[in-house]
Amino acid sequence: MIPQVRVQAEDFDLACELEGFGTGANTGATVSFTGRVRDDTGDLQHLEIEHYPAMCEAAIEAIAQEAVTRWALTDCRVIHRFGAIPVGDQIMMVATAARHRKAAFEAAEFLMDYLKSRAPFWKKEVTKSGTSWVEAKDEDEAALRRW
């Protein structure tokens, strides 16, 4: 099975993305996660996400294919947005389907950890008082090491 990966500026309709997802005869579990832009300080206006299109998509496709193989997924979809994304808006989604729930959950967590710390995106917080690049966090690296 070939995972579906999209890197796009426009928002996505979660219900439409999940309709018909993972409905194969061998699928016993589906898992989905949607990440949103959050404001921990009360100052964030939006998040700006930059990427190199071909490099970014190829990297996510490779890690999604690894998840498909490693957990014998029956379906896999990853969507990640770029550009200026306001607080509260969807930034990404991961959906996995497998014969059993443990595989679907683990594959989804693996993909989310990769997207958080290794996917080639550059994130900048735009606040009322200026801008700053988002730096990698130790806990994100630790989460990725478990895989």
Rank of each mutant, 00 (worst) to 15 (best):
I60C: 10
L14N: 04
P3M: 04
Q45A: 14
M112F: 05
T27N: 08
R145A: 09
A142P: 00
Q65D: 05
L44N: 09
M1S: 13
G83K: 09
R145W: 05
E66C: 10
I79R: 08
Q90L: 09
A64W: 04
T41M: 08
L47D: 07
A15I: 05
I60M: 06
M93Q: 02
E139S: 14
E61T: 09
E57Y: 05
I49R: 06
T34K: 12
A54C: 05
A103E: 11
M92H: 08
S129Y: 11
D138V: 03
M112D: 02
A95V: 03
H80S: 07
C56H: 03
H46V: 12
Q4D: 04
I2P: 01
D13W: 01
D40V: 12
T23G: 15
V5L: 10
D138A: 14
M93V: 00
V134K: 12
V7H: 12
A119C: 07
V37K: 10
D40W: 11
E50H: 15
P86A: 15
H51Y: 11
S132L: 12
A108M: 09
T30G: 05
R70K: 13
H51N: 12
R70I: 00
A58G: 10
C76M: 02
K123D: 10
F105P: 00
V87P: 06
P3H: 05
A95Q: 04
W147C: 04
S32A: 11
D89R: 08
R101T: 13
I60L: 14
A25K: 09
P3T: 08
N26I: 05
I85P: 00
K102L: 03
I60Q: 01
E141Y: 00
Q8T: 06
V7Q: 13
E17I: 08
G28A: 07
G88L: 07
D75N: 01
C56M: 01
M55G: 02
R146C: 04
R36K: 08
P53E: 13
L14K: 08
R118A: 06
I63S: 03
I91K: 13
A59N: 03
M112A: 10
Q4R: 15
D13Y: 00
F21Q: 05
A98Q: 01
V87K: 13
V31N: 04
M1E: 06
A67K: 08
E17N: 04
A9M: 09
A72P: 03
E66Q: 15
M92C: 14
Q4F: 06
M112L: 15
V94C: 06
R145S: 07
L44K: 15
G42K: 15
R81D: 05
A142V: 07
T23L: 15
T34H: 01
V126M: 12
I2N: 12
E106S: 13
D11N: 10
F33P: 06
